[in-house]
Design a protein around this nucleic acid. Structure first.
Length: 914
RNA sequence: GCGCGGUUAGCUCAGUGGUAGAGCACUACCUUGACACGGUAGGGGUCAGAGGUUCGAACCCUCUAUCGCGCACCA
């Protein structure tokens, strides 16, 4: 057999095996299988997306769960796919068009633009799927889905129509979050508030009925003054009570506005007077509704001022206009003062620009099944890991508000609604301030619509047609231009990606693996969708919830704790990491530092460790292979086991248990850490080194036994490790010939029963005592400045009978010339000595520097005395002896005895030196 | 303001009531027959602070400090 290279080369191995797995259709799920089902649907990445470390973490976890389930004998479905990312994709293509052709989507028109998006998608889209394959993901690619697949899109439309018919979806003119950069409405969840430094402007409004008297307000947004339609104070505020019902002059776009009183005003804030701007503030809009105020819009959709009445401001960007408005007021003596002020401003999650609250006609969903969704998690029909996310989820559901689902975007699922041509339902979004006012006053229906937001009303419904097919007399209707929020399609993802047969076998899915930042966007909404649309095999909630478990990963941050972002450039490219460290190295390195429920600080060093671990495993396998061919199904003979083998097998059992427990709680870092420690420390550092005595010996029986144990445990290691490092383990499995079949479907190792082995505890104890003696001896050598490579003699003053068989192993592990057993050895030349569980170990040289040796022993004595004192102290306490569990007391007594003996020996050695 | 999470070695983090741990970094020795992406040994911690519960607290409880996250408010 050819010797393996010194280093594992992931590149060739990873591609080779991934291709083999695909060719063999190992990842394909069979709905007709008699095996029990295990299923995961992948959170669909954006079609425009490229692989990030977040994806690596998330998908590695899913892959681990799926691969483990396959080994446990489940029929596994891991269903992959992508979503169309309406706003994101449209923005990307628009940018591209501007750069390459200097055109906007409006230049091209809807049809041509959509054609271009498809073209772009074919060229640049879906890279991420290929990248996931490089990571080794065992998805059933034959079932890959897309939110714009024909059948999927049809399902989204059907859901819309159904919900409309159930009167859960309605069209209304309401305050929404407007993104002036993307120029679309957003849902509440897509707005993130950030503290902003700005000013509080104190502006004076003259009272119409009392010229010369002014009413002062405080505002952060003087550029919206032209949209003021009232001034308001708290009804209990005596300072202003006399002004109720009077009017004030609006200082910009001069106009009379009413002075009103409303409970919503905080008398403590500013001057206690609020300028009411119903078109540009959510609270003001509500006040406006209560007092039947006009809504005057002075902003263009892109955030520029739209107010020809004030030419100085008209056309200016809102932030420039803010400064300019303050200057205008200042010049007119109406700006009392300006104070620096910090407040929270809503930013678009999409384009990172301040959101404009804006009155607009949009489609909304009244969430159904919110109580059931709450109960499903509260009663643990669905379990969250870590559990504290349950609270966050509940809090959101309890304060839930209607979901604005329409987007002024072309790329996506077009809303299946039509309006009668003769009566366009949409009001002009932008209107010259004075013109809009005219309209508002002239058109009673516009006023009506503001109050009756609800298009479920029959009179509103007569002008709207909602259906999967266009209306029969299509020429009289015009379809809504807007598309649906992307999340309105992905909330069906857990089941709409499956055909009927697949659903019957694999729905509900076992677990959803996702980042907590989409708990509302996606997780909660999927739960609601499952409960409302009931895709399960019965009507019971437990059959309809989309998943049993949700595992929330941590967020990956950079070394400094910052979120990874493109603009900071602090996000490493996973593909480069794979090139450098191998997919398995990346996977293992990342999993070892991925605690549950905690954010993860990324450091490339950790990935390097993953790679090093792969090399370590590779090399120990290489060592094994140098000593002949392994058994295909390694078996061990219990009667011939060395004490080191017994210790190793017992540790393997403990590791299997610990791993099993950690998986149950989704503690992937614990699984990885246990495997790492077992392989590196227990297997390589201790067992293999100790077993070399037998492996290199002439005694064929011993040699055979040691190699069999190596094989048995290595085979277990490969299987336990396979979910984390699929390529490497498959390669070694095949090279060592542990199975004809792929390791993917090999059964996980079970705990080995050590029943047939005599005196397991005694053997383990002896093995550990040997190891401790080795460590003590090595320490002596190092302390005495004996170079690591110099063979040197040791004398062990201990019971010869017990350890005579182990002397050769001791000699090997100590790199000793010889280890002389001498029960009656008398230290003559002040030999450096250490006390071990076996007895005392001496270095067979005269201490070259007696002072140094004394110092060393004094330190050692002090340490033992210290520990002894602690133990004594505890045992002196009557309360401890009386109340602590007997086993604990006994443990301390044994410890005390041990330490005393140690101390005596050390003191004796110390005396010999003086 | 409400809620959640963190604070343990220089760094990154394990550690659910009984002798404080790992990896990296650091120091010394070592290319010895799997591995220098390695081996051996070592130094390094008032477990954020205060109080309480307990025979016993890094761990449970209370408060404080501090960092982070979510929600609400924000004229």
């Amino acid at each position: 057999m050819a010797e393996l290279p010194k280093r594992y080369d992931p590149k060739a191995v990873e591609t080779k095996w991934y291709r083999r797995w695909i060719d063999d259709r190992d990842f394909q799920a069979n709905p007709r299988s008699s095996k029990p089902p295990f299923s995961i649907v992948m959170p669909p990445p954006n079609i425009t997306g490229v692989l990030t470390l977040g994806h690596v973490l998330n998908n590695t976890i899913q892959d681990i769960l799926c691969r483990r389930a396959r080994m446990q004998g489940f029929e596994v479905l891991w269903l992959p796919g992508m979503d169309h990312a309406g706003i994101g994709t449209q923005t990307a293509v628009e940018k591209y068009l501007r750069r390459t052709e200097n055109k906007t989507r409006h230049d091209l028109g809807r049809e041509e633009f959509l054609r271009r998006v498809l073209e772009w998608q074919d060229k640049h889209g879906g890279i991420i799927i290929e990248q996931l394959k490089r990571l080794g993901c065992s998805c059933d690619w034959s079932r890959q889905r897309y939110t714009l697949d024909e059948s999927y899109a049809a399902a989204v439309q059907k859901i819309f129509v159904d919900l409309y018919n159930k009167e859960l979806i309605y069209r209304g003119r309401r305050m929404i979050n407007w993104d002036p950069a993307a120029q679309t409405a957003l849902s509440d969840e897509e707005v993130v508030s950030k503290p902003q430094k700005g000013n509080l402007y104190f502006v004076r409004y003259e009272i119409v009925e009392e010229p010369g008297r002014f009413l002062e307000i405080a505002t952060t947004r003087p550029e919206t003054i032209m949209a003021d339609t009232a001034m308001a104070f708290h009804p209990g505020d005596k300072r202003y009570l006399g002004l109720l019902g009077k009017h004030a002059w609006r200082p910009l776009a001069r106009e009379k506005i009413r002075i009103i009183a409303d409970d919503a005003i905080d008398p403590e804030f500013g001057t206690g007077v609020l300028k009411v701007t119903p078109a540009h503030d959510a609270l003001d809009f509500e006040i406006g509704q209560r007092h039947n105020l006009h809504v005057v819009d002075v902003l263009h959709p892109d955030g520029r001022i739209n107010c020809p009445a004030v030419p100085e401001l008209d056309g200016l960007d809102r932030f420039e206009a803010r400064k300019k408005a303050a200057e205008l007021l200042q010049a007119r003596g109406l700006l009392a003062k300006t104070e620096p002020y910090e407040n929270n401003v809503g930013f678009s999650d999409r384009s990172d620009v301040p959101i404009e609250p804006r009155v607009s006609e949009q489609w909304f969903l009244r969430y159904p099944k919110t109580n059931e969704a709450l109960a499903a998690v509260r009663d643990h029909l669905i379990r969250f890991f870590p559990v504290h996310w349950e609270k966050v989820y509940a809090q959101w559901l309890q304060n839930i508000r209607d979901w604005c689902i329409s987007r002024q975007v072309w790329w996506g699922h077009r809303i299946p609604a039509w309006y009668i041509v003769t009566r366009p339902s949409r009001l002009p979004e932008v209107a010259h301030a004075s013109r809009l006012r005219d309209e508002e006053e002239r058109k009673p229906e516009a006023r009506l619509r503001m109050r009756d937001q609800d298009t479920c009303k029959p009179e509103a419904r007569a002008t709207i047609y909602v259906g999967i097919e266009p209306p029969p007399d299509a020429e009289n209707w015009i379809q809504d231009e807007d598309t649906l929020d992307t999340w309105f399609s992905s909330w069906l993802w857990a089941y709409e990606t499956m055909d009927e047969k697949t659903r019957a076998k694999f729905y509900p899915t076992n677990v959803l693996v996702t980042a907590p930042d989409i708990i509302f966007f996606w997780v909660a909404r999927m739960i609601i969708a499952g409960l409302e649309f009931k895709p399960g095999k019965s009507n019971r909630d437990e059959d309809n919830v989309p998943f049993r478990h949700v595992y929330f990963t941590g967020l990956i941050r950079d070394k400094l704790g910052r979120k990874m972002s493109k603009s900071l450039g602090n996000s490493p490219d996973p593909l480069e990491l794979i090139d450098k460290y191998g997919a398995d190295g990346l996977r293992f390195g990342l999993m070892r530092i991925a605690p549950s429920g905690q954010d993860i600080r990324f450091d490339e060093k950790q990935i390097e460790q993953g790679r090093n671990f792969a090399t370590k495993l590779w090399n120990v396998a290489r060592f094994r292979q140098m000593h002949g061919v392994s058994e295909a199904a390694p078996r061990i003979d219990k009667k011939t086991l060395s004490i080191y083998a017994v210790e190793l097998l017992a540790r393997l059992n403990e590791t299997i248990d610990a791993i099993e427990a950690a998986y149950r709680e989704y503690q992937f870092n614990t699984v990885a850490q246990r495997l790492y420690d077992f392989v590196w420390s227990d297997y390589c550092d201790w067992f293999v080194e100790a077993a070399k005595t037998d492996i290199f010996s002439e005694d064929e029986a011993k040699k055979k036994s040691a190699l069999a144990v190596m094989d048995f445990v290595l085979s277990a290691i490969l299987r336990l490790l396979h979910p984390f490092m699929p390529h490497l383990t498959e390669e070694l499995w095949s090279l060592l010939g542990f199975g004809k079949e792929s390791i993917q479907f090999a059964a996980l190792p079970e705990k080995m029963v050590l029943d047939g082995v005599a005196d397991v505890p005694g053997k383990r104890q002896l093995a550990l005592a040997i190891y401790q003696t080795v460590q003590a001896g090595r320490n002596l050598r190092a302390e005495s400045k004996v170079p690591s490579n110099r063979k040197i003699g040791f004398i062990l003053r201990a019971d010869e009978k017990l350890i005579s068989d182990q002397v050769s192993t001791l000699t090997r592990l100590l790199n000793a010339e010889e280890v002389r057993l001498d029960r009656k050895y008398r230290a003559s030349a002040g030999n450096p000595v250490a006390v071990t569980p076996l007895g005392e170990i001496f270095l067979a040289i005269a201490a070259t520097d007696k002072a140094r040796e004394r110092e060393r022993l004094d330190k050692e004595i002090a340490k033992v005395e210290n520990e002894l004192r602690t133990a004594e102290h505890k045992l002196d306490h009557k309360a401890f002896v009386d109340r602590a569990p007997a086993a604990v007391v006994e443990e301390h007594r044994a410890r005390l005895k041990n330490l005393s003996a140690q101390l005596a020996k050390l003191k004796q050695a110390r005396e010999g030196l003086s």
